[in-house]
Design a protein around this nucleic acid. Structure first.
Length: 728
DNA sequence: AGAGAGTCTATTTTT
DNA sequence: TAGACTCTCT
């Protein structure tokens, strides 16, 4: 067979990686070095050259998006259906294992997945139920504690230092939470991984089956694996499996949620004869951008070592803008984008990256005002919307009435006179008898433990749910969804909200029915023995859907530095480059390599840019309602100075104090007071805001601002130099 | 049950 | 400062 297509267009290092003979491999793949390409070509190489059965390969990624891309690219390259390949996220694959081996994993067949919101609600309830004060014991922290333990593979019984009172309490909450989950057949995200690990630990026969079958393991973004994921991989590989691991220690930015860069080093230690290959040639950025990024990351200790290079052009210098405040920064960035667009370039070639989500707001404001289309990454996803989750909760009850999380969510939604009082009696009963709320509810009615009125209401709810269960059983998913929404009368619940809010909710429910209608049971889920309903619900939790269904085309991209990982843009703005914001204060204060992680984040951000990179910072920023001054990010100092070019506006905004920084560029001509082109009270015309009256001037020289009362837009302060006012 | 007042908190996010 | 959240009162 001709396999030249597998090696064409690969550089030497890439080729070496793809064609490695057996054994284990660590591919240290720098940003933009063709990492995904190597992974996919390796996969194809195994099949087409080494004649490995597609069934013998497991490829693991972190996000559904990455898994999807890998699947489709593999299909294209191999010219075959990627169906038999096991490609998926850690969670997706672990989930599949649990579905196939629910008995061995000691789970009920219809176990449900709790997303983090469900988990947090459940925890809040447990904490209150335990009589703990939830200001001292916040659910969020409990969630953090439990997930961190699970990520380390620890059950409550494993937790030591029970003599430490706080830890003892958290462990106790963990235990109670576990009881709840087991009772209702509920599994959170961390639990999926932990269970899958325990499944193999406790069922040698199952492990043996998969060890024999999956001999070739390809892992993407290895630097993001946590302890349990690594343990799971090691277990699967055993002594015979072959690991092909791709990652970049310099792009490890998820330490705060349990990722262990050390796994990269451990890998080399734990597996024999690991071949290490570095991919350092970069196909994305200009020489200048790479030199700058290299300069920054070089300040980190204990790296595996890697230096990106390109045989492309050096490109333009990195721009640096020192803004007076955050408003000025946003104004500047948007104006730069305007200029870019005026050159006839596309908006979707531009990204604005920032450290914290809150920073997006100002940019949105200014973009909106400038009439430039934009898209903000992150935010609420479809299957996480309240109304969608409410409707799904009913569906979950249809599948498994013991799902306490679902029952609690909707038992009084819409209001059916089942108040807190009643529900807490149910909880108490459930806890005492160690049964689910559903069972407890029936017991309470039978034993007359709740007053007659409430009892009737609860009975009504039980009838509703079991009625749904019976009737809906053999219907199509879409009809089930519709029936559940109709019969629950959820719409009446939202009916009381403001009109606009209500309409979107109803619209989303309609969309949910459409999604159910359009849902096709994936083959792998069918193979795992899932019903359509089970599969749909699992999908809703494991891939909560796109953030926004909005159009994707030709918008300026706004996102945090974290969510920019893996993406690239011709033009990148990194905003808020201030010490305290980036690196974030919390990371500076905390020990444990947090600062180095911030530096890696900076490295990730910079290497997103293909042609142009522009950094900006504000000397003063309004945060949490207070004005604060800060100095430029230390990361800026780490960029070789000759690569930076400071951008000065023709006229800067008003500065209340003199910057200590030396001005790099010569100052452009400035206005003097006498040269004000307008008089107070004069009528002026603005291209956007229309006609108005000059109310005041502020500042002088290049800082001159002018206040104008516009007939339509109201009163505004504008920087004179930018306002382009016309006298009337 | 719902409005309105008061309180608290503010890093990053996927599954 | 603003938004989410809780509590209180009707």
């Amino acid at each position: 067979m001709d396999v030249s297509h597998l090696l064409q267009d690969l550089n030497d290092a890439q080729r070496a990686a793809v064609t490695l003979e057996g054994g284990h491999a660590l591919i240290l793949a720098g940003a933009g070095s063709g990492k995904t390409r190597v992974l996919i070509h390796r996969l194809a190489w195994l099949i087409q050259v080494n004649h490995v059965s597609p069934l013998g390969i497991l490829a693991v990624t972190f996000t559904n998006k990455a898994a999807g891309e890998m699947r489709s690219r593999a299909g294209t390259l191999l010219q075959m259906s990627p169906r038999p390949l096991w490609i998926g996220t850690f969670h997706g694959i672990a989930h599949r294992l649990l579905r196939m081996h629910w008995k061995e994993a000691r789970l009920p067949e219809s176990f449900q997945i709790l997303d983090s919101e469900d988990q947090q609600r459940l925890l809040r309830r447990i904490i209150r139920e335990e009589g703990l004060d939830d200001t001292h014991w916040p659910a969020k922290q409990a969630q953090w504690f439990i997930n961190a333990r699970k990520d380390e593979g620890e059950r409550p019984r494993h937790i030591e230092h029970l003599d430490h009172p706080a830890t003892a309490t958290w462990a106790h909450i963990y235990q109670r939470y576990e009881d709840y989950c087991n009772r209702g057949g509920l599994v959170d995200f961390a639990e999926i991984l932990l269970r899958a690990h325990e499944l193999w630990l406790e069922q040698p026969a199952v492990l043996d089956h998969y060890r024999r079958r999956l001999q070739y393991l390809l892992i993407d973004e290895f630097q993001d694996t946590n302890a349990i994921q690594y343990a799971w991989l090691r277990m699967l590989a055993g002594d015979t499996g072959s690991m092909f691991v791709v990652g970049d220690d310099d792009q490890s930015i998820y330490g705060w949620r349990g990722a262990r860069v050390e796994n990269v080093q451990s890998f080399v230690r734990d597996f024999p004869a690991v071949a290490t290959i570095r991919l350092e040639q970069n196909y994305r950025s200009t020489g200048t951008i790479l030199a700058a990024a290299n300069g920054v990351i070089a300040n980190n200790q204990g790296r595996m070592g890697k230096k990106l290079w390109t045989d492309g052009p050096d490109g333009t210098p990195i721009n640096l803008y020192s803004a007076f405040n955050e408003q000025d920064e946003a104004r500047f960035v948007v104006e730069q984008i305007r200029q870019w667009l005026d050159q006839g370039r596309r908006a979707d070639e531009v990204a604005i990256l920032y450290r914290t989500t809150a920073q997006s707001r100002l940019f949105e404001e200014y973009l909106l005002r400038a009439g430039i289309a934009y898209r903000v990454y992150g935010g609420q996803r479809f299957f996480e919307r309240v109304e969608v989750k409410d409707a799904l909760a009913y569906l979950r009850l249809v599948l498994n009435p013991n799902d306490d999380a679902a029952l609690e969510r909707v038992i009084n939604k819409p209001a059916r006179a089942i108040g807190d009082k009643t529900v807490s009696i149910l909880r108490l009963q459930a806890r005492e008898a160690n049964v689910s709320l559903w069972q407890a509810a029936q017991a309470c009615i039978r034993q007359k433990l709740i007053p007659p009125r409430a009892s009737a209401a609860v009975q009504e709810f039980i009838d509703l749910a079991s009625g749904m269960q019976e009737r809906v059983q053999n219907w199509t998913l879409g009809n089930q969804m519709q029936a559940v929404i109709d019969e629950s009368k959820l719409a009446t619940h939202y009916g009381k909200e403001p009109r606009e809010r209500m309409e979107t909710r109803i619209e989303n429910l309609r969309e949910l029915v459409n999604a159910a209608d359009a849902f096709i049971l994936p083959n792998e889920d069918a193979d795992a023995g899932l019903t359509e309903l089970q599969s749909f619900l699992s999908h809703a939790s494991l891939e909560a859907g796109e953030t926004q269904g909005e159009s994707w085309d030709d918008c300026v991209q706004l996102m945090t530095l974290h969510s920019a990982k893996g993406l690239e843009f011709p033009v990148v703005f990194m905003a808020g480059m201030e010490d305290g914001l980036f690196p974030h204060q919390r990371s500076v204060e905390e020990s444990g390599g947090r600062l180095e992680e911030e530096r890696r984040l900076c490295y990730v951000g910079m290497t997103r840019a293909r042609k142009q990179l522009c950094l900006s910072y504000a000397e003063t920023r309004r945060m949490h309602g207070a004005e604060s001054m800060s100095r430029p990010s230390r990361f800026i100092d780490e960029i070789p100075a000759d690569l930076l070019q400071e951008i000065r506006p023709r006229l800067a905004a008003n500065r209340p104090y003199v910057s200590a920084r030396p001005a790099a560029a010569a100052k452009p001509p400035t206005f003097k007071n006498q040269e004000w082109p307008f008089k107070l009270g004069q009528r002026v015309l603005h291209h956007k805001f229309g006609e108005g009256t000059v109310l005041a001037f502020e500042g002088s020289g290049e800082h001159t601002r002018v206040q104008i009362n516009f007939a339509k837009a109201g009163s505004k302060w504008l920087v004179l130099a930018y306002a382009k006012l016309e006298a009337r």
